[in-house]
C-alpha cells in the first residue's frame, strides 16, 4: 500500500486525509477498494450494462403522447434518473420513443430516422396509436401501429400513458437489454457449434 500511495500522491492531494467526517472519504481507502480488485464478466454483458445505463432517446414527438413524454423528461418526473437523455439527432441516439399517431405521410420519415440510428438500437411504441392505431383504428390515413414499419421492443399501453408508465416501459427495456446480452451469448455459441458440425 505504501507504494500505491506514493504513486498516486499527487492525485490524492485534494483530500483531507486526516478528517473522518462523512462524505470526505480518505483517498487511500478508495484505491484500496477499487484498484486491486478485478471484475470478471462476459464482455457483452458488460457492454449491455453500460448501454442500458445510458440510453439516449431520440426526441421525437408525434402527437398527444409527446406531451406526456415531455412531462416525463421535465422537473416533476425527471426521467434523467435512469440515465435517459433526450437528443434531437438520430445519429447519436439509442432508443426511439414513437410517441403518437403514425400517419401514412409520416411513415417514410420514420423509417428513415430509424435507419439513421446507429446499432444497437431499440424502439418503444408509446400509446395506443403507436401500438395499433388506437382511437383512430378506422381512419383512412393512420398506420395501424408502428410495428408495420419498424421492429418494436416495448409497447407502452395507454392513451396517453402516464409518465410513470413510460418509466416502467424504459425499465423493461433495460431488463431486456441485459437479458438479451445473456441469451445472445448462448445463441452465438450454439450457432458456432452448429457451424462446426
Amino acid at each position: 500500500m505504501e507504494m500505491n500511495q506514493d504513486k498516486y500522491s499527487d492525485l490524492t492531494k485534494g483530500y483531507d486525509q486526516d478528517s473522518d467526517k462523512r462524505g470526505n472519504i480518505p483517498a487511500e481507502s478508495v484505491f484500496e477498494e477499487v484498484l486491486p480488485n478485478v471484475i470478471a464478466a462476459k464482455s457483452n454483458e458488460l457492454f449491455a450494462l453500460a448501454r442500458k445505463s445510458s440510453l439516449w432517446t431520440l426526441s421525437f414527438g408525434l402527437a398527444c403522447c409527446a406531451i406526456e413524454m415531455m412531462s416525463a423528461h421535465m422537473s416533476h418526473h425527471d426521467i434523467d434518473r435512469f440515465g435517459i437523455v433526450t437528443w434531437p439527432s438520430p445519429r447519436q441516439s439509442d432508443v426511439m420513443i414513437v410517441a403518437g399517431t403514425v400517419v401514412k405521410k409520416m411513415a417514410d420519415p420514420i423509417k428513415r430516422l430509424y435507419e439513421q440510428m446507429p446499432e444497437p438500437k431499440w424502439v418503444i411504441a408509446m400509446g395506443a396509436c403507436a401500438t395499433n392505431g388506437g382511437p383512430y383504428y378506422r381512419s383512412y390515413s393512420v398506420v395501424m401501429g408502428v410495428d408495420h414499419l419498424i421492429p418494436v421492443d416495448v409497447y407502452v399501453p395507454g392513451c396517453p400513458p402516464r409518465p410513470e408508465a413510460l418509466m416502467y416501459g424504459i425499465m423493461e427495456l433495460q431488463d431486456k437489454i441485459s437479458s438479451d446480452a445473456k441469451n445472445r451469448a448462448n445463441l452465438i455459441s450454439k450457432k458456432h457449434l452448429n457451424n462446426e458440425n
Partner: peptide, 16 residues
C-alpha cells in the same frame, strides 16, 4: 400520391 377524396361520404373507412 394519395388516391381519392376521403372526405366524401362514398369513401370507405377501414374495417377493423
Amino acid at each position: 400520391d394519395f388516391e381519392g377524396n376521403p372526405g366524401l361520404k362514398s369513401y370507405p373507412l377501414h374495417e377493423y
